[in-house]
């Protein structure tokens, strides 16, 4: 029987195939697997240790759709049954007619509601094992986006951009006066009164993405935005 030993520190960067812990005391969580008595990372990511559970949060990678996520999608195809959206994951997602808010007349031209290339904030209602993704626009904050600009960030860094109870994004909105929506798929929509303001938000979001692993980032960003005024 081997001794239980932790081989990495919390928030350390690990590579695929790296041993994280030895012994059966520790349990593999997301992004890790157990081989015999060792726990091994499957991603290039940051270790997160929660008591006995060891997790690796990937630093890069495509968005993996999850039920109840709010994402930003772009209409790529229109069929008889609804719309097909690109939500930045490996699979296309379907927004069916029944899942749209508001009344749609029978045999109506669907481009009146969402046209090709339109950007929509949608919720994910279902992800099957075969990864077919169902979407909805029924719900608070789910709507078509008009104007503004879209930038893309790494999906795994989205929680950092939103912050604890939305602290980061609330601050960002208050300090710049821009309207910002960040989807879980790593797409952020920014709309402000001027392009300068939008550029400032873009710059700030890029900075957060780059420095997402630093502690006390919210305060740092706050100072940065205040000095820009």
């Amino acid at each position: 029987m081997t001794t239980n030993k932790l081989l990495v520190k919390d928030k350390e960067i690990v590579i695929p195939g790296q041993e994280l812990a030895q012994g059966l005391e520790y349990l593999p969580s997301q992004g890790t697997f157990r081989e015999e008595d060792k726990i091994i990372s499957t991603y290039l990511g940051l270790v997160s240790i929660n008591q006995r559970f060891i997790k690796v949060i990937p630093l890069t990678g495509k968005y993996v759709p999850k039920v109840d996520d709010m994402v930003i999608g772009k209409v790529t195809d229109i069929g008889f049954y609804g719309w097909t959206l690109d939500i930045g994951c490996a699979y296309h997602a379907v927004l069916s007619l029944r899942e749209t808010s508001g009344f749609i007349e029978r045999n109506d031209d669907l481009t009146k509601y969402y046209d090709y290339g339109d950007v929509v904030v949608v919720g994910i209602t279902r992800v099957t094992k075969q990864k077919s993704v169902d979407l909805t626009t029924k719900g608070p904050g789910l709507k078509k986006l008009i104007g503004g600009k879209i930038i893309e960030v790494t999906p795994s860094k989205v929680p950092r951009m939103i912050g604890k109870q939305g602290s980061m994004i609330t601050m960002l909105k208050e300090k710049t006066g821009c309207n910002v929506i960040i989807g879980q798929n790593g797409r952020a929509w920014i709309k402000g009164d001027s392009t300068e303001k939008e550029a400032l938000v873009t710059k700030t979001i890029m900075k957060i993405e780059k420095e997402s692993h630093i502690n006390g980032l919210t305060d740092k960003i706050k100072n940065m935005l205040e000095s820009k005024k």
Partner: peptide
Amino acid sequence: LAHAGIPMKDM
């Protein structure tokens, strides 16, 4: 592959 965030058991 590692940089793309693909799950890998080893390098």
